Amino acid sequence: MQEYIAQDEISKEILNSAKLLQAVNVNALIIGSNGVGKKSLAKYILPKSQIFEAKALQQDIIDEVITIKNDAIIIDKIQDLTNISLLLKWIEDNSIRVIAISNSDILNQKLKDIFSINLEIPDLSKRENDTKLLVQKFSKEASSTLDMHTIATSKLIINTSNNAHSLRKSIYFSYLFETIGEEEILMFLERYLSEHLDGENAYKDLIYLFEVPLIKASTKKYKSQVQVAKNLGLNRITLRKKIDIHKELL
């Protein structure tokens, strides 16, 4: 059975609803941002069912190449459907149960009406305990995949900006970072810069790649702007200007 991480209270409530959906034959809609666990939850509800991407399923129905009757399916990215009436007729004619996945709750009303239950999964930024468990899971996975000793949690880079997708990537990067030195960092930076050099203001446009991490690291280490300015060898006015310039990234 597909694993769905549920340590926070909101996740436990969602999981309880999912357990109910295992027992009752109704259509349900799972909503949430990328990487919050929508597909894992859908597979938890219907572990033996096929997953179809909405656009591909729509085309298969048009081409009459899909022969499913009296069954349950998972439809991913249902917000991408363009012919709602076609899908609804196919569902009704073939007695299909649907567990659908969407990044948005802004859907055609006719489509929304077929779902008896809506489950909305919050971002990881609102699920502290789930995130901790995912960090442990991805750390163990990275250690095994890369054949490295497990590294301390305090040394892991935790990025949940794109939920589990970015978190997993940041954990793997944390492990890889343990194996690289200054030479490799300069090499990676050089390659990135060479691919993004464009126009006559390249220096001005790309200097943030150096300044943003330097300001972030200094702020974490020295706390106050007075100490940050002192240890970076900048006056406070210059530091404040740079912070204002990069405020969206800081």
Results as ranks from 00 to 15, higher is better:
71 D>G: 08
47 P>E: 12
5 I>W: 02
139 S>D: 05
167 L>E: 07
9 E>I: 13
199 G>Q: 08
225 Q>D: 14
37 G>N: 01
174 S>I: 03
7 Q>I: 02
230 K>E: 13
230 K>G: 00
209 L>H: 05
150 T>V: 14
175 Y>R: 05
125 S>E: 11
64 E>S: 13
185 I>S: 02
97 R>M: 08
136 Q>R: 12
132 K>F: 05
137 K>L: 14
183 E>M: 10
198 D>G: 00
198 D>E: 12
200 E>R: 09
129 N>R: 12
226 V>R: 13
212 V>I: 15
86 L>F: 09
32 G>P: 10
71 D>I: 05
214 L>T: 15
7 Q>G: 07
169 K>I: 13
210 F>E: 03
109 Q>S: 15
58 Q>C: 02
218 S>W: 06
22 Q>C: 06
54 A>Q: 00
47 P>K: 09
49 S>M: 04
6 A>I: 03
128 E>H: 10
60 D>P: 00
78 I>N: 00
95 S>A: 12
53 E>W: 00
82 T>D: 06
50 Q>W: 00
27 N>R: 08
185 I>W: 07
182 E>Q: 13
135 V>E: 12
168 R>F: 02
195 E>K: 13
30 I>W: 04
204 K>F: 15
148 M>G: 06
38 K>N: 09
217 A>E: 15
94 N>F: 04
143 S>T: 06
85 S>G: 13
4 Y>D: 04
65 V>W: 00
127 R>L: 10
206 L>K: 11
57 L>I: 09
36 V>I: 08
87 L>M: 09
201 N>R: 14
69 K>I: 10
134 L>P: 02
26 V>S: 11
113 D>V: 02
121 I>T: 05
132 K>A: 03
247 K>A: 11
19 K>D: 10
197 L>T: 11
118 N>Y: 12
209 L>S: 06
41 L>A: 07
179 T>I: 11
227 Q>T: 10
217 A>S: 14
157 I>N: 11
157 I>M: 13
212 V>P: 03
21 L>D: 08
193 L>I: 15
16 N>A: 14
110 K>Y: 07
180 I>M: 11
37 G>E: 02
33 S>A: 14
58 Q>T: 01
169 K>C: 06
183 E>Y: 08
15 L>S: 09
203 Y>D: 07
122 P>N: 09
162 N>F: 07
51 I>W: 03
162 N>M: 13
249 L>E: 12
171 I>R: 03
232 L>T: 06
178 E>N: 12
151 I>Q: 03
25 N>L: 06
82 T>A: 02
125 S>K: 15
78 I>M: 01
126 K>H: 06
111 L>N: 04
226 V>N: 11
98 V>P: 03
107 L>W: 10
134 L>Y: 04
133 L>A: 13
234 L>M: 15
41 L>V: 07
233 G>R: 06
161 S>V: 08
124 L>I: 05
47 P>A: 09
64 E>I: 04
240 R>T: 13
224 S>N: 08
229 A>G: 11
125 S>R: 10
150 T>M: 13
68 I>P: 02
96 I>M: 03
131 T>M: 07
55 K>A: 01
43 K>I: 02
85 S>T: 15
21 L>T: 05
217 A>R: 12
5 I>S: 01
101 I>G: 01
228 V>R: 04
90 W>A: 01
70 N>E: 14
31 I>T: 04
193 L>N: 08
25 N>V: 04
219 T>A: 10
81 L>V: 01
113 D>I: 02
135 V>S: 05
225 Q>M: 10
81 L>T: 01
247 K>H: 14
